[in-house]
Structures are given as structure tokens and as C-alpha cells.
Design a protein around this nucleic acid. Structure first.
Length: 253
DNA sequence: ATGGCATAATTGTTATGA
């Protein structure tokens, strides 16, 4: 079972790239973030032609998440059962595993209202798991978490130390979610870090290797123990019109 | 060994990203 996650930074801008990647990689599950499209603009027919079912939670201009799978998708839930209008979470059952595609708020800058929203959103996500799930359930939480776990996730830690991706409060909020019952599956296969998933479009960040690991695949322990490999497909950050994020892939037995 | 911001909503400029 191959499970992947990819922040596309607009599904319409990345449609052909998405189909090429699905064709080449054939993931069983692909969690998408930043669709930047409402449900009516989601390319259902193209995704279906590529051999995938889709559960979509779209939003105009911003956010938007989806789960694609070549298997049957059931029990789709959009959002966290509250009145937040931002489309940042979708979950569904695939082959007996609860798959969650999450687009955590960026937070813009420490000290702003957006950063407060980010921290509050993460607290709500933890409360959601406490309320709706058990660490004994087979869960896989995928997405753009907009948090780098520690310095091993950042090529230039000093440059990012005060950013919303690395700030102590964001890291603490993520650690509390993990401590509820998740394993950082990617880190399990790359204990020394140094593998990144996002590079700024500006300042030659990609060719300079100035990356950050902010996209993650977490799983509850029973599922995490069955993971056999994890990787980032850096090739998807290359070429014409890439997303600023590359796909993260984990293989499970 | 790739590309120097990009995207959507609009139509010139702004909000947002990370």
C-alpha cells in the first residue's frame, strides 16, 4: 500500500503534472492540499480517467483538500464538525484505514491573528482526535502541516528559527497532536533528517538546497509499524511550473 | 542541474503563501 501526500498549490495549475505523476507512481492513496478551487472546478473526469476515485472538500481561491484513491473510498467527512468555513480537512476510509488529508494554517507571522488561528486550529485537531478516534484505530494523517518538527527538518535553521514554521508554540502544538497517538512515519525512515518537502520559489531556494520538511505522514502505531520505506519525490519540484512542495510517499506492508 | 515568485480573482492590483 503506497500512501502519498502533495500540496499542489492549485490543482488547475498542476493538473497535467498530477496525471503524469499518478501514472508514473500509481499510489494507492494520494492526499492533496491547496486545491485553490471549489468543488465545481475540481477535475473529476480527468482524475477518473487516470483511474482514481476522489473525495473533495473545495473552496474558492484558497485552501481545499482532497483524497484520491484507486480503491473504494467510503465514509467521507469534510471538516471537523464545527463552523470553520476554511476547507482544510477531509477524511475517509480506504481498505480499512482512516485516511486524513490536512492543510494546516500557515500562520503568516508570529504574533498575528493568523498565527493565533493556526495554533487554535491545531488544538481543535487534537480535540477532534480525542473526541472522534482512538490511538488504537488504524489512522494515517497526511498533509501540509506547516510545521518543521526540529532543526533536522530545516536546511538553514537559523534563518527560519523565528518563522511560523519553526516557532516553539507551533512545534509544541504539533508535538501534542503526535503525542495523542501518532508516529512521524517519514522520520522513522530518516532518523537523521535532512530530507525536505518544500522550497521557496524565490532566491534559488531549490537549487541551493534551502528546504524545509513541513509535509508529513503520521500514522497510529499499528499502521506505522508496517511502514517499509519513505521518500520525497524531488523530481516534482523540477521542470516547468512546479508546485513549491514535492510529494511525500510512504510504503506500507 | 535548476531557474531567479506563484496563484486566483480580475483586467491592475491585492491577498496569501511559507
Amino acid at each position: 500500500m503506497k500512501i502519498a501526500t502533495w500540496n499542489l498549490n492549485s490543482i488547475r495549475a498542476r493538473e497535467e503534472r498530477l496525471y503524469r505523476w499518478l501514472d508514473a507512481e500509481q499510489p494507492d492513496v494520494l492526499c492533496l492540499q491547496e486545491l485553490k478551487a471549489q468543488d465545481d472546478d475540481f477535475p473529476f473526469s480527468g482524475v477518473e480517467a487516470a483511474g482514481y476515485n476522489a473525495a473533495v472538500y473545495g473552496q474558492k481561491t484558497y485552501n481545499g483538500v482532497a483524497i484520491l484513491s484507486n480503491k473504494t473510498i467510503t465514509n467521507v467527512v469534510r471538516g471537523m464538525a464545527d463552523d470553520d468555513p476554511q476547507a482544510r480537512l477531509i477524511q475517509a476510509d480506504i481498505e480499512g484505514i482512516r485516511i486524513i488529508s490536512a492543510y494546516f494554517p500557515n500562520g503568516q507571522q508570529v504574533g498575528t491573528e493568523k498565527y493565533q488561528y493556526k495554533l487554535a486550529w491545531m488544538k481543535r485537531l487534537k480535540a477532534f482526535f480525542e473526541r472522534e478516534a482512538s490511538p488504537d484505530d488504524p489512522l494515517v494523517l497526511c498533509g501540509d502541516f506547516n510545521v518543521a518538527v526540529d532543526e533536522a527538518d530545516v536546511a538553514n535553521p537559523e534563518k527560519w528559527s523565528e518563522s511560523v514554521l519553526c516557532h516553539a508554540d507551533a512545534r509544541k502544538a504539533l508535538e501534542e497532536i503526535r503525542a495523542w497517538g501518532f508516529v512521524d512515519v517519514f522520520r522513522r525512515h530518516h532518523p537523521d533528517g535532512g530530507v525536505y518537502s518544500w522550497w521557496d520559489y524565490r532566491m534559488l531556494a531549490f537549487p541551493k538546497g534551502d528546504g524545509v520538511r513541513i509535509d508529513h505522514i503520521y500514522a497510529t502505531s499499528a499502521v506505522a509499524e508496517r511502514s517499509t520505506a519513505a521518500s520525497v519525490d524531488r523530481n516534482e519540484r523540477k521542470g516547468k511550473k512546479p508546485s513549491d512542495h514535492a510529494p511525500l510517499i510512504v510504503e506500507f506492508d
